[in-house]
Computed example of a mutant assay.
Amino acid sequence: MEQSFTTIQEARKWASLFLKEQQREPGVADWLLEHHLNMSYTQLMAYGRDPFPHEKKTAFVADIYKHTETGIPVQHLIGEAEFYGRRFKVNGDVLIPRPETEELVEGVLRFIEKKGLNSEYLKVVDLGTGSGAIACTLSLELDHLDVYATDISSQALETTARNAHQLDAKVKFYQGDFLAPVAGEAIDIIVSNPPYISLAELKELSDTVVRFDPHLALFADDEGLAAYQTIIRQIKSYHLRPMLIAFEIGHRQGEAVKAIIETELPGYHAEVRSDINGYPRMVFAYTKASIKSQR
């Protein structure tokens, strides 16, 4: 396992090439270097000719080998992931927050702004919160929001609580099945990145996802639509009338989720939106009376 590099630049070159040879993402080298050397990417570039600290070499090399051999996410190795400019603790109990979900949050914030509600008291609930990335971000971006977060996993909620405490985000979290723990609340906005992968898609996933992401947060019955069906059924049975329902979806599910909402919740219009890469990855639904204010 001993490697002959002596500078930061040489370590980066060795790790990137090795990762590429092992069919792993070369960029993992930079993430691990930043973590082990406590440097930013800019500092890595600026001080690349500096000697690599001898006392940190063994741990860095070990993490490179561990990632290539097992596929363990680099975020699990360093214990955190970045989301909306903030760092969140992550582990095997929660999904690693992804850039696509930032666009879901941005859509919710844009809705609030367009409605002129930037200073209004609103109750928001994040269903299946996991790391708490969505809930904490909304709370921190607009401090007038009353944010709730639910998850069926007590282990996930422990991570949510740590992140909320670390970031000083005012989030109330409850264990239970989606809306069930807050059934008595009058919710203004519902947002969720629920499990939406069908078991038939298992073979399409990378080993990193299959082996290390919590399956409870990944897979759903009925071709991946079961979670949406449950949430919409709860909205209906609890007689809720949120001004906005915002879902992250699988890129093949847009029309199906739109149909579930508009069939089960008369008076709502659902809009399928694409992410920055052009894939339909979000559904935003609001009452027909408020559609004009969204344009």
Rank of each mutant, 00 (worst) to 15 (best):
M243P: 03
L205N: 08
L202N: 10
R281I: 10
D168I: 00
L240K: 09
E262T: 04
A226M: 11
F247C: 05
D275S: 04
E264W: 01
Y238K: 05
Y238P: 02
L218N: 11
D221G: 14
A164W: 10
D151L: 04
V272F: 04
V209N: 02
A227H: 11
D222E: 15
H269T: 13
S206F: 01
Q253D: 15
L205E: 04
N163K: 03
A259P: 00
F173R: 03
M243K: 10
L205V: 09
E158L: 10
E271R: 14
G254D: 06
Y238A: 07
A183N: 12
S192W: 14
D168C: 08
E158F: 00
S198P: 13
G250H: 11
R273Y: 05
D207Y: 04
R241D: 14
V283P: 02
L199G: 00
A169F: 08
H215L: 06
S198V: 09
E223N: 15
K236S: 14
V191Y: 13
F178D: 06
Q175F: 03
I232Q: 00
S154V: 02
F219W: 03
T208I: 01
L240C: 03
L167R: 03
R273E: 02
L167T: 04
H269K: 13
S192F: 11
K170I: 00
L244C: 11
